[in-house]
Measured scan of single mutants.
Amino acid sequence: LVRYRTISKIPQITLNFVDLKGDPFLASPTSDREIIAPKIKERTHNVTEKVTQVLSLGADVLPEYKLQAPRIHRWTILHYSPFKAVWDWLILLLVIYTAVFTPYSAAFLLKETEEGPPATECGYACQPLAVVDLIVDIMFIVDILINFRTTYVNANEEVVSHPGRIAVHYFKGWFLIDMVAAIPFDLLIFGSGSEELIGLLKTARLLRLVRVARKLDRYSEYGAAVLFLLMCTFALIAHWLACIWYAIGNMEQPHMDSRIGWLHNLGDQIGKPYNSSGLGGPSIKDKYVTALYFTFSSLTSVGFGNVSPNTNSEKIFSICVMLIGSLMYASIFGNVSAIIQRLYSGTARYHTQMLRVREFIRFHQIPNPLRQRLEEYFQHAWSYTNGIDMNAVLKGFPECLQADICLHLNRSLLQHCKPFRGATKGCLRALAMKFKTTHAPPGDTLVHAGDLLTALYFISRGSIEILRGDVVVAILGKNDIFGEPLNLYARPGKSNGDVRALTYCDLHKIHR
C-alpha cells in the first residue's frame, strides 16, 4: 500500500512540481520508500527539464536528425535550378540546329562534286560548318556529364541527390541515346576521305529529338503553341524528305545512260545542264529549293507536275512521300480545326451564355430598361472574369491554397485601402477568403433606401454616388468604403439613402 501511494504521487509531482519531503505519510521509514524516492526525484528532475525545454521552444527539443539540413553532394545540380533551365534551352537550340543542318550536310555532301578544292585539302579548321559541328559534339558530351550530376524525382516524389543513384537512373534511361548522339564521328573518321560515311553517321544526332519531343509535351495545353509546333514538325519532315529526294537524284545521276532524272530535267529547265562528264548542272541553292518544293507539294497532295519522278527509285520514294503525307494530314492537320476551336472556345461560351440571357429575357418578357441593365451587367461581368467562376475553380483546392490565391487576387485593395494598413498577414488572409466580388454598370442602383444592410462594401474600381431623395450626399471612388460596420450592432440596419454607380464599378463586399 505504501508503495502504491508513493507511485500514485508521481503525476502530481510531474505537473505541480511538489516535493515529496513535505508529505508526512511518505516520510515513514520503510525500505521500499527509501529505494523508490531517489528514482522519483530523478524522474521528476528529468520531466521538469523536458517541460522547461518545451515551454522555452528551444531548438534542442527536436531530434538531432530533424535539425540537420538535407545534404547535397558537391557538384550536384538541382533539376529545378536556373542554371539547369538555361542549359536545357541551350541544348534545345543545338538539337534544332542539328535537326536542320545534319540531314542537309549528309545529303548535299554525298558524292558532291561542286567546283573547288576537296575538304581534305583545305583542312578541318577552315570549314565553318565542321567547326560548328565540333562545338555541338562537345556541348552534347558536356550535357552527358551534367546529367550524371543532376537530381531527379523518383516514384515516391522524392528528390534524389545521391550521385550513385543518379548515375544508375541515367544509365537506365537516356544515357545510350545521348551517348550515340554525342559521338564525334568527324574526329574519329577525319582524314579518311569518307565524307559520305561521316554525313550518314552524323544523322545519329537526330535521336535527341525524342527527348525534345517529350520536353515539349508540357506545352500541349496551349493551343497556339501546339499549332506552332505542328507546323514546325511538318516543315521539318518536309526538309528531311527534300534532303533524301536530292540524295536519290544525286546518286543516280552519274550512272544513268539517259538523262531522265529530276536533276537533269531541272538543269535543262533553268539552262544549267550537266555536261557529258557529269559536272556542271544547277547550283546547290536551286537543287535544295526545288527538292523542298517537290516534297511540300507531295505532302499537301497538290502535285503540280513541273517536278516529277521519272526513275524507279524516284517513283518509289514519291509513293512513300504520299503515304507520309496522308498520315500527316490525319495526325496534324486533322487537329488544326480542334485547336482553332479551342482557341476561340471563350468567344463561343460568351455567345452561348448571351443567347441564354436573351432567351430568358424573351421568355419572361423583361421590360426594355431592365433588359438593357441585365445585358450590360452580363457584358461587364464577362469582360472582368472571362466567364470563369472563381468560386467553382477554387473549390477543388485546399483552404490554405485558397487563402493564398484570394490574398493575391485582392492584393491591390488590401495594400491601398486604409482600414487594412497594419493588419497582420493572417488577418488579411482571413479577410480575403470572405470577400465576394460584384460588378455594376453605370446607372445601376446597388442599394435602395430602406434596404437591409448586411454587408460592408469596398470599391475596387469606378465611382458611385450616394443620394437622399434627389440630393447627392457624397461621391465615392476607388478604395472608399460604404455599408454597415460589421458586428457593431446586434441587428442589421437599414439604408438611409440610395447608392448608384456612376461608372463601371468593381466592388468587394463582406457579409455579416
Rank of each mutant, 00 (worst) to 15 (best):
N275Y: 01
A181H: 03
M231K: 01
F294G: 01
A182E: 05
Y344S: 11
V302I: 02
S276W: 01
F363V: 10
V159D: 01
A99E: 01
D286A: 01
D186F: 12
T347N: 12
V289R: 01
R74A: 08
L292T: 01
G305S: 12
H364P: 02
A125G: 08
S337K: 04
Y293T: 01
Y274H: 01
P398G: 03
T120L: 04
R362C: 02
P128D: 01
P367Q: 09
W240Y: 01
M390N: 06
W382T: 07
I237W: 01
E375C: 05
D286C: 01
V210W: 15
L431Q: 03
Q415D: 10
A225S: 06
M328R: 03
T300E: 01
T76N: 01
Y350R: 04
G267I: 01
T102C: 01
S331L: 06
M231I: 09
V136L: 01
D444L: 07
E314D: 01
E195M: 14
E195G: 14
L401A: 03
H351V: 03
A242V: 01
I198Y: 10
C400G: 10
L134S: 06
T150R: 01
A119L: 11
T120V: 07
W89S: 03
K434Y: 04
L227H: 01
N410P: 03
Q269L: 01
Y246P: 01
V131E: 01
D268C: 04
Q353M: 03
A247C: 01
I144L: 06
D186C: 11
F420T: 01
V307A: 01
H79C: 01
T295I: 11
Y104P: 01
L206P: 01
L431T: 02
P419I: 15
P163G: 09
C417P: 03
L394C: 03
A449M: 06
L134Y: 06
F296I: 13
H364A: 08
E314F: 01
V136D: 03
E121A: 14
R349M: 05
F296H: 01
F190H: 09
N265T: 14
F397V: 08
S81I: 01
S313V: 14
C406G: 07
S105A: 08
L401W: 01
R349N: 07
E376T: 14
F363W: 08
W89V: 04
L414S: 01
A440S: 13
F296L: 13
Q402M: 04
M179V: 11
L230R: 01
I198R: 10
R208F: 01
N410W: 01
A242N: 01
F397R: 02
P309E: 01
M256Y: 04
I138R: 01
S105P: 01
K84Q: 04
A182F: 04
Q415K: 11
G422D: 15
L197S: 03
P82M: 07
S383F: 03
L374I: 07
N391M: 09
P419E: 08
F228K: 01
I366P: 01
N156E: 12
M179R: 01
N335G: 03
S308W: 01
W174D: 01
A69I: 08
I177W: 10
G191P: 11
S326T: 15
G281D: 01
L263K: 02
S298T: 14
R373N: 04
K66G: 07
L230F: 12
N368R: 09
P163H: 03
C122H: 01
A119R: 15
V142R: 01
A291K: 01
A181G: 14
